[in-house]
Amino acid sequence: MSADVTPPADRQQHPAGLDPSVSAVELTRALCDIPSVSGSESVLADAVEAALDEAPHLRVTRFGNTVVARTELGRAQRVAIAGHLDTVPINDNLPTRLVEVSPDEAAADVEGTEPGAYLWGRGTVDMKAGVAVQLKLAIELTEPVVDVTWLWYDNEEVSAELNGLGHLADARPELLRADFAILGEPTRGLVEGGCNGSMRIDVRTHGRRAHSARAWTGSNAIHAAAPILARLAAYEPATVHVDGLDYREGLNAVRISGGVAGNVIPDECVVHVNYRFAPSTSVEDAEAWLRTFFDGFEVEVVDRSPGARPGLDAPVAAAFVAAVDAEPRPKYGWTDVARFSALGVPAVNYGPGDPQKAHADDERVPLAQIDRVEQGLRRYLTGLS
């Protein structure tokens, strides 16, 4: 088990006020110890806004529980740097504490876990460590080499129609205009460019109900779904090269439903399919491809999210990659970088924490990764090599 190394006197909830002059690790603790489950971000948004109001070089805008802070230095380029304030529900994993992960536990845990000091607790990985780094740098860096739009938003962990960044993009798109964007989602301190798109569909078959003792009088919709599963099993995922990165696609049945009773031939079967497609493919083309792939079957699109190109060939992106000294990788999962991409802004993911620990009851972030991401962003924004 992880050893708890937090002094007992220190195991108390931090006050709602934030002090950005402390280390990024301590600021992460303060942010995490202000609970902000999706839909309840107002106290944390108030604290972030109050801290930013003390920085005269920033123009601060509040939009619901989304906080935007902009430099206006007249630089040739503008970079948007964003993070969400909300977390999934707490499960006896607050307040935060410092723990030490032993070599044996690291070897037995998820891939990429390293021995050493961690900050444990809800939100440490997804994604308040990234938010802490961003908030500290936003206040400290009064003369970045690019103009920066810092954004902290609500409701990322719930349905898309509630997403604060999405609401801001709809109501105030000018606040998201930039030449490049960085989202502080956990990437273990690596650069993950863009993201795959995602589409979910229902592929439906129909039959005719009958008593199972006289099955020949009906038509079995579940049996009729066999060709659907056969096509999926035979599918070979494509790898698509986009802006220097190789995105691996995926097509999988993730749920199947059908049947009404144990003695009734089913008259309907639905195979729920998730398609992950490269960011060079539009949602319209993805849908058209799926309809061709499942030709002969009824197809209904139930969810669609466009991908995001990383745009790593842009000079502003190349400068970022060089500054943080991390070889870019593709992001296979969907993130809010897609919202920037939809506005024509190339975007990457870059933040501390292993995404495999996001939402876990033992959510924890390596202290070394918090420091490394802070140093990388600092180098980039100050023009240091």
Rank of each mutant, 00 (worst) to 15 (best):
T292E: 15
S282I: 02
I256E: 08
I182Q: 05
T187D: 05
W289M: 00
P237V: 10
D179F: 08
P266G: 11
P279S: 07
G207N: 09
P237C: 01
P227W: 11
E268D: 09
T239P: 09
E236T: 14
H223N: 15
R209H: 13
D243I: 06
S282D: 07
T281R: 05
V203C: 08
P237L: 01
L245D: 07
M199G: 03
G258F: 05
E192K: 15
G189Y: 06
I182M: 04
F297S: 12
D267S: 15
L190I: 00
R208M: 02
S212Q: 12
V203H: 07
V271A: 05
G258E: 01
D285G: 01
R276G: 07
E268F: 06
S198D: 04
A181K: 00
R200G: 12
T292L: 03
E298Y: 08
H211M: 11
F180S: 15
D202E: 15
T217G: 12
S219P: 01
F294S: 08
I222A: 03
R255Y: 15
N220C: 05
G218C: 02
M199N: 03
N274L: 11
G197Y: 03
H223A: 14
R276H: 07
R209Y: 12
G296P: 04
V191Y: 00
G250K: 12
